[in-house]
Amino acid sequence: MGDLAVGARSGHDGPEDRPVQPDEAASPAAAGHAGSGSGSADGDTQGGGDQAGPPKKQRSFWKELPLLVGIALVLALLIKTFLVQAFSIPSDSMQNTLQQGDRVLVDKLTPWFGSEPSRGEVVVFHDPDNWLRGEPTTTPNAIQTALSWIGLMPSAEEKDLIKRVIGVAGDTIECKDTGPLLVNGKALNEPYVYPGNTPCTLDDQGGQFKVTVPPGKIWVMGDHRQNSLDSRYHQTDRNGGFVPVDNVVGRAIVVAWPPTRWNTLPIPDTFDQGLSVAAPGALGLTGAVPLVLWRRRRDTARLTAGNPRVSGSGTAG
Rank of each mutant, 00 (worst) to 15 (best):
S91I: 01
S115L: 10
A31T: 00
V220W: 01
T178S: 12
A252F: 00
E157R: 09
G47Y: 11
W262T: 12
F82I: 05
W257G: 06
L265A: 01
A278P: 15
S231L: 04
D160V: 13
A142W: 13
G222A: 06
D23C: 13
D246H: 08
G170T: 04
H126Q: 13
Q144E: 08
L67N: 03
L73M: 09
P19S: 07
N247S: 06
L229M: 09
T138V: 13
S313D: 15
L73W: 04
A256R: 02
T139V: 14
S231H: 07
A187G: 14
G2D: 09
L147A: 07
E158F: 03
F271L: 09
L161M: 12
P111G: 04
V183Y: 00
P154A: 15
K80F: 05
A5K: 11
R302W: 10
Q58E: 14
D237C: 10
M1W: 07
P15G: 03
G48M: 12
P191R: 11
S88N: 07
R9Q: 11
V124T: 10
D230P: 05
L293F: 13
S88M: 06
G43A: 15
S91Q: 02
R309H: 14
F209A: 05
R261C: 04
N96P: 10
Q21M: 10
G179Y: 08
D203N: 15
W62R: 06
V122H: 03
G53F: 05
G32A: 15
R295F: 13
P54H: 14
K186R: 12
T260L: 07
V254Q: 10
P117F: 02
